[in-house]
């Protein structure tokens, strides 16, 4: 067992974990942060994407011990006192989700994408989200939502 200290959505946790424990299982099973779902076991689908020290990672391919000392932001920590994050609002407005299972990962990945590229083209969004799979939407509205989220984030800055 290893002792790790991780901040998740603003709360600091000190936990003993098995070295093999995946970050996503740490979040879900140990901390009860079930907003981050698991869609596959080969890091292809991206449903479990979270931000680790500000960058998107697939939390199924990070060990909890690798997150020692890190600051993790999940979908559950995204909305602030002012309400939903602009990217959350954009996904709602553009109907960019149906079953919603990919949505937490899709939103977190989109936020990272827009951090790197504040004004992405449709093609840049499509290639930037290649690692996040959605089975419901056909992606058209996701692309629109990311454009809109990017614009609103840009306007807010």
């Amino acid at each position: 067992m290893s002792r790790i200290t991780v901040t998740v959505d603003g709360t600091k946790y000190e936990e003993e974990v098995e070295p093999r424990l995946l970050l996503v299982h740490f979040l879900r099973d140990r901390l009860g942060r079930t907003g981050t779902p698991i869609g596959c076991d080969t890091s292809n689908c991206g449903a479990c994407t979270v931000l680790m020290d500000g960058r998107s990672v697939k939390s199924c391919s990070v060990l909890a011990v690798q997150a020692d000392g890190a600051d993790i932001l999940t979908i559950e920590g995204l909305a602030g006192s002012g309400g939903w994050h602009p990217m959350q609002r954009a996904f709602h407005e553009e109907h960019a989700l149906q079953c919603g299972y990919c949505t937490p990962g899709m939103i977190m990945a989109s936020i990272d994408l827009v951090q790197d590229n504040p004004d992405p083209s449709e093609e840049e969004i499509r290639s930037g989200l290649e690692g996040n799979l959605c089975r419901c939407t056909g992606y058209c509205n996701i692309v629109r939502a990311v454009r809109k989220g990017a614009q609103e984030l840009g306007a807010a800055q």
């Binding site: 879900r28 009860g32 907003g35 779902p37 996904f91 709602h92 919603g100 937490p104």
Partner: peptide, 21 residues
């Protein structure tokens, strides 16, 4: 109409079966 369902889905407050402990 924008969907009533979205709020819980975009904030991670969803009850997927695997969430149940």
């Amino acid at each position: 109409r924008r969907r009533k369902e979205d709020g819980r889905l975009i904030t991670g407050r969803t009850l997927w079966t695997d969430n149940i402990q």
